[in-house]
Amino acid sequence: MTATAHTPVENDTRSLTTASDSARAARRRSRGHDSDRSAGRSPGKTIIVTVVLALVAVYFLVPAYWVVVAATKTTEDLFATNGFWFAPTFALWENLGRVISYDGGVFLRWFANSVLYAGVGALLATYFAAAGGYALAKYAFRGRDTIFGLVLGGVLVPGTATALPLFLLFSQMGLANTYWSVLLPSLVSPFGLFLCRIYANATVDASLIEAGRIDGASELRIFHTLGLRIMTPALVTVFLFQLVGIWNNYFLPLVMLSDSDLFPITLGLNNWRSQVDRLPEFYELTTGGVLLSIIPLAIAMIVLQRFWRGGLTEGSVKA
């Protein structure tokens, strides 16, 4: 048999034909994906969803906008002008200066207390939730399902239901009216443990754990070097939820604390608000303090939102 020789022109023609066929196939696949994404959608449903999302955004953003506007006003302008627009006198910097300097800078102490409660509490609660969720997902032991069921039960119990029993317990232990009385309950996150267990079960492959054991790594080292790194999106999610929850917590500090030097921001601002009837200037202190109190949460949400979205969705679908 003799091989058929092709000229350079024929080779170029075949290459162009193959490239054209590949391009057409790619366009067909792209059209197929586009049709899959648009399947089941209609203009009416899109409009309804957009309107609902817009209403939800307005519901959450309007109070924050009002706080920003109110913090720029004096007490007289706060009641004499439109609540959703700025007054002729812009008093934001004066109000914030009074907030920081009032009563020897007690607001800064409340701010530091909130950073301690929320920062340390959220960090340790995230670590404990990761350790517990990892253990429940990757180790088989007697009573594992029972423990997980109790954790799910803990998610359903509101914090207000346990505040009074905790106060009585801490009073007997001598921990009431101390930093520990607010910090220790913040270290437990049933929802965080539940989320970490689901995430670890979906993303931490058993073969990685076995490879670490074969290499001679201890269980703790495998957890810290492999487990925590793989679970990072879920950990950031738990940290964010716990940070916001502790920062906004009001009832537990109200029950546990009587010393104003131990108050978090929520309790301190409520203390200021309760005095507005006899001292109207506390309106300026309260609105300015509220504005300063939401800045850390806004920063945390902006910085961690991409990890938060990934933590909620990653691992939910397997290829």
Rank of each mutant, 00 (worst) to 15 (best):
P233W: 14
S35I: 12
Q275S: 14
G104M: 01
N248Y: 07
S22M: 06
N249V: 07
F84R: 09
D103P: 01
L123P: 03
V188T: 11
A319L: 13
F263A: 02
S20W: 09
V317H: 03
T18K: 08
F107M: 12
L195S: 03
L285V: 06
A298D: 05
V9K: 09
W308N: 04
A87E: 09
N82C: 14
R24L: 12
A26G: 05
R24G: 03
T237L: 10
A135V: 15
L292R: 05
Q305F: 12
L208A: 13
T203H: 09
V9Y: 06
N95Y: 02
R14V: 11
F60P: 03
I100G: 03
W66H: 10
G216Q: 08
G133D: 06
I302K: 11
F86V: 08
F60Y: 04
G149V: 10
E314A: 15
A125Q: 00
F194N: 01
V49D: 11
V157Y: 04
L96D: 06
Q275N: 13
D261K: 08
Y102S: 04
V115Q: 00
T225A: 13
P88I: 07
G32S: 14
E281F: 11
G159Y: 11
V182S: 03
P43W: 15
L53S: 07
A140V: 05
A163T: 08
S181F: 09
L184M: 12
I302N: 06
A23K: 10
F107H: 08
A200T: 02
F128V: 14
T4C: 13
F191T: 10
S293G: 07
H224V: 13
G97A: 12
T287I: 03
W85P: 07
S293M: 10
A163P: 00
S218N: 13
A57P: 10
G245P: 05
V236I: 09
L195P: 01
F241N: 02
P8H: 02
F251G: 00
R278W: 09
G143K: 15
D261P: 00
Y117K: 08
L279V: 15
